[in-house]
């Protein structure tokens, strides 16, 4: 029987493969999947590490920021020697250390209406781990136009919210939930 997974991969993912819900078919789907992470910060860090470890075949990471010492207490993909380096580089190296099977594509730029369509077209799913409303609405709209599901999460202090927006499967989008951003004066910086 021919498999799309190498012997090394079968061994690496064996604890997935023994779960009937995942199995070889599921692991092969993970390997074939292309996931784009917006933000390599507090949410993006653990996401990138977990998705990379789990065997998502292609991970895109977009962030135009550099690692700051105040990030380290929560942005666990970054380490002290990487302070001052681009977050996408710091995270790519960490993911490759954990799982060299993953193809990591980095975008050291800010997401914009100009670059979004071309980049989103390369991915099956986008994950929003951004920290501002401009990017959240842009990610929502660009995901809608690209026809791909958006996994959304946001955190403020001790509270968080998560959803999946997938209008193509009949679900709502971020704008169905929040049709307008909060007034700028009320947005915490």
């Amino acid at each position: 029987m021919e498999s799309k997974l190498s012997s090394d991969e079968i061994q690496r993912y064996s604890r997935h493969l023994v779960l009937p819900e995942v199995g070889m078919a599921g692991q092969e789907k993970l390997k074939a999947a292309k996931v784009l992470l917006i933000g390599a910060g507090g949410l993006g860090s653990p996401l990138g590490l977990y998705l990379g470890a789990a065997g998502v075949g292609t991970l895109g990471i977009m962030d135009d920021d550099v690692v700051d010492v105040t990030n380290l207490q929560r942005q666990v993909a970054h380490s002290t020697p990487n302070v001052g380096r681009p977050k996408v580089d710091s995270m790519r190296e960490r993911i490759e250390e954990i799982n060299p099977e993953v193809k990591v594509e980095t975008y050291d730029v800010r997401l914009s209406r100009d670059n979004a369509p071309e980049i989103f077209a390369k991915y099956d799913i986008v994950v929003d781990g951004s920290d501002n409303f401009e990017t959240r609405y842009l990610v929502n709209d660009a995901a809608f136009f690209a026809g791909i599901p958006l996994v959304y999460g946001s955190i403020f202090r001790f509270e968080g919210q998560i959803s999946v927006f997938d209008p193509k499967r009949g679900g709502p989008c971020y704008r169905c939930l929040y049709s307008n951003p909060p007034p700028a004066a009320l947005v915490p910086n």
Binding site: L51, D124, V151, G153, V164
Partner: peptide, 10 residues
């Protein structure tokens, strides 16, 4: 969020 991604893929 990671679990949601994996469930969507599989």
């Amino acid at each position: 969020m990671g679990t949601e991604v994996i469930k969507l893929i599989i």
